[in-house]
């Protein structure tokens, strides 16, 4: 089951060279792109962009203007300020500066730990023969579907017993645990694609598992590691449930999402704060996403999206 399941989730295993397709599809393009199709595409793109654009404009308008009229008036009555961002970040306003630091401190280990552990495990599953390998792999694979809700309360009481409650450790460990099945699954798929001869040849030369792992596999795995890294990064940075459960709302450990959700609940009409706050929380993931998009897409196509 292990091998077939792995491949089964690849809807597109090999994408033919895009350049070749484009050349062949030149005629098709003319056939399908009618003015109506273009209009529909532009309309959809507009519908999808307008909400974000509206809030972005709002985040740069003075409070008085925001409360007085809609954001679309910025063309007729232009006004610009950075006060909203200043207020949202400062400790006597939204206090998001502190939470921004927390988000960073949470995210970095929560991405690194599962990547490293999963590469070790994926290597064992892909390239070491041992008894019960397939069964264990299927179990790990199946655990991907466990909703994290099922685990939260018992996990919380474990953390309390271990004296970890309220520290970053609860969030790091939880994200590592929840990320491992997907990480192992993705990395295993990529490792299996590496030609057997390459590994066998290294073994003939007397290389042990550790050398094979670092010298042969690691360089080839960079795209896979990047793909999972982005998933996990976006997942952790954007997570609300795990953070809310284990960190509560304290400025000591809670991330931006928690602070923003609280702000939305308590100051639901303070749009100067909410708009700036929303973009403060978005800027890092959007930058990471845009700069590493191709790895993200590759990971998506390899079946890696956490539900």
């Amino acid at each position: 089951m292990s091998a077939t399941t792995g491949d089964a989730v690849l809807p597109v295993t090999s994408t033919p060279s895009i350049a070749a397709l484009d050349a062949a599809g030149g005629k098709l393009k003319k056939r399908l792109t009618s003015p109506w199709a273009s209009l529909a595409a532009v309309l959809l793109a507009f519908l999808w962009t307008a909400p974000t654009f509206g809030l972005l404009v709002t985040s740069f308008r003075p409070k008085a203007a925001i409360d007085d009229s809609g954001w679309w008036n910025f063309v007729a009555h232009p006004s610009f300020t950075l006060d909203n961002y200043r207020q949202a970040l400062s400790s006597n306003g939204g206090g998001l500066g502190t939470f921004f630091v927390n988000s960073a401190v949470i995210t970095i280990p929560a991405v690194l730990i599962p990547i490293a552990l999963a590469s070790l495990a994926a290597y064992a599953f892909a390239w070491i023969e041992f008894k019960g390998r397939n069964l264990l792999f299927v179990c790990v694979f199946a655990l991907q579907i466990v909703p994290i809700q099922v685990t939260l309360i018992p996990l919380l009481s474990l953390y309390v017993k271990a004296g970890l409650a309220g520290t970053f450790w609860t969030i790091w460990l939880s994200h590592a645990m929840f990320g491992l099945p997907l990480a192992i699954f993705l990395l295993h798929n990529f490792m299996k694609e590496i030609p057997r001869e390459l590994v066998e040849a290294a073994r003939m030369d007397g290389a042990g598992h550790v050398q094979i792992f670092f010298k042969v596999l690691m360089p080839l795995l960079t795209p896979a590691l990047a793909a999972f890294g982005i998933f996990q990064f976006l997942w952790v940075w954007n997570d609300l449930l795990v953070a809310l459960t284990f960190a509560g709302g304290t400025p000591d450990v809670a991330p931006l999402t928690v602070a923003l959700a609280n702000l939305s609940g308590t100051q639901g009409t303070a749009w100067q704060l909410l708009s700036a706050g929303a973009f403060i929380s978005m800027v890092i993931p959007v930058l990471v996403f845009l700069s590493l998009q191709r790895f993200f897409v590759r990971g998506l196509l390899a079946g890696g999206l956490k539900g």
């Binding site: 974000t52 939305s264 909410l274 959007v286 990471v288």
Partner: peptide, 16 residues
């Protein structure tokens, strides 16, 4: 792009 945004952020965008 909305995929890169947190659900919390998306919630605020649409609440507006």
């Amino acid at each position: 792009l909305p995929m890169a945004i947190s659900f919390v952020g998306a919630g605020i965008i649409w609440k507006f």
